[in-house]
């Protein structure tokens, strides 16, 4: 019975994922194919005057731009399923290689800031909730409201001005020092380059988790079962540990894992500001340069990424809350 329900769950989610990927690729393809950017022109770039109309027609023919949109999509789909994701027009290398390289730097950036935002946000929320109504609570709340209304790119610019331009503590951009061979770059250098973009992303992510955690804790501290736990003689940290944390962590967990999409969106902006060569920067360039294969590849990968985040939130919810776990089978 248990095995059966698990396999049913997996089948259901895989089916959902396939449908989602199909819909997203269709939509992105439709949007790109109607965009005003001419892929040939984007490809040739400044050399436009030196390329004859015949040569341009040849390129278009070679890329299959004359075929119907449906055929183009089907052709892309078939090769994508075979594992051939095409060649990036801007980088002139296979899409899979570009994504693999970019995803690594992005993953470091997003992972670090995601973890920081979660941990700091959760504890800020707990502190504010435990000290509800005090100046500490009000400070934390004010800070969170301010952050929640701060755009990531603006905060990035501020940090950049302060720490890189005025103080000179951190590099102005990129993920490694310019003009250095990749194999010579030390871990410290990489971390120094990672610091500001990660800080920007995590600071913005803190607000959501902190405010929701605080709200939930206040609600729980006011609940019947906490009153009863107090009547049973439990108090302070022990009370929080035994009865608070599990209950309080629910919104933080679901919010934070479901925020993979926001983190990704934030990364696009932060990478742009800090010229950090991650996936976010690549997707902007692919969009502006009409690089369809790369754009589609990144879009599908990020879809998968966000989907996994939501699925993890779902799973963890079941692990923490027995009502979700057992309620489904019963």
């Amino acid at each position: 019975m248990r095995m059966q329900s698990i396999s049913l769950w997996i089948v259901k989610h895989v089916f959902k994922l396939i449908l989602l990927l199909l819909a997203v690729s269709l939509l992105s393809f439709a949007l790109i194919s109607y965009s005003p950017i001419d892929p040939v022109q984007a490809y040739v770039g400044a050399d436009m005057t030196r390329v004859s109309p015949e040569q341009r027609a040849n390129i278009a023919e070679y890329w299959g731009l004359n075929e119907s949109k449906t055929e183009q999509f089907l052709a892309w789909g078939k090769s994508f399923l075979r594992g051939e994701w095409g060649t990036s027009l801007i980088y002139r290398t296979p899409v899979a290689d570009v994504i693999a390289e970019r995803f690594q730097s992005s993953l470091a950036l997003m992972g670090v800031s995601w973890l920081l935002a979660g941990v700091i946000g959760f504890w800020l929320g707990i502190v504010a909730g435990m000290r509800q109504g005090t100046w500490l609570d009000k400070m934390i709340q004010a800070y969170c409201f301010m952050l929640a209304s701060t755009p990531a790119f603006w905060l990035g610019l501020l940090l950049l001005t302060l720490f890189s331009v005025w103080l000179g503590w951190f590099p102005v951009g990129l993920s490694t020092p310019a003009g250095m061979n990749a194999e010579n770059v030390t871990l410290v250098e990489r971390l120094r380059h990672l610091f500001l973009p990660a800080l920007t992303l995590s600071i913005v992510g803190v607000a959501n988790v902190a405010l929701h955690t605080r709200q939930k804790l206040v609600e729980i501290l006011d609940s019947e079962f906490i009153r009863f736990a107090k009547a049973k003689g439990e108090h302070g940290l022990r009370l929080l540990w035994r009865h608070g944390l599990r209950n309080v962590s629910l919104p933080a967990v679901s919010l934070h894992f479901a925020s993979f999409g926001e983190i990704f969106g934030g990364a696009v902006l932060a990478e742009q500001v800090f010229s950090y060569p991650g996936l976010g920067q690549a997707v902007v360039q692919a969009g502006l340069g009409g690089d369809v294969p790369l754009l589609l590849g990144i879009v599908l990968l990020s879809t998968l990424f966000v989907f996994i985040g939501n699925m993890l939130a779902d799973l963890l919810y079941k692990v923490i809350d027995p009502r979700m776990r057992k309620g489904e089978n019963g």
Binding site: S223, K232, G233, N247
Partner: peptide
């Protein structure tokens, strides 16, 4: 509180929803 005096609450909502009942009894 909890040692010399204890409460029998009005509502069954007073039980922690995320803790098995035996552990809630054992706490006192």
């Amino acid at each position: 509180r909890g040692k010399e005096m204890i409460l029998i609450p009005q509502s069954v909502q007073a039980l922690d929803p995320l803790m098995p009942s035996a552990r809630q009894v054992q706490a006192v």
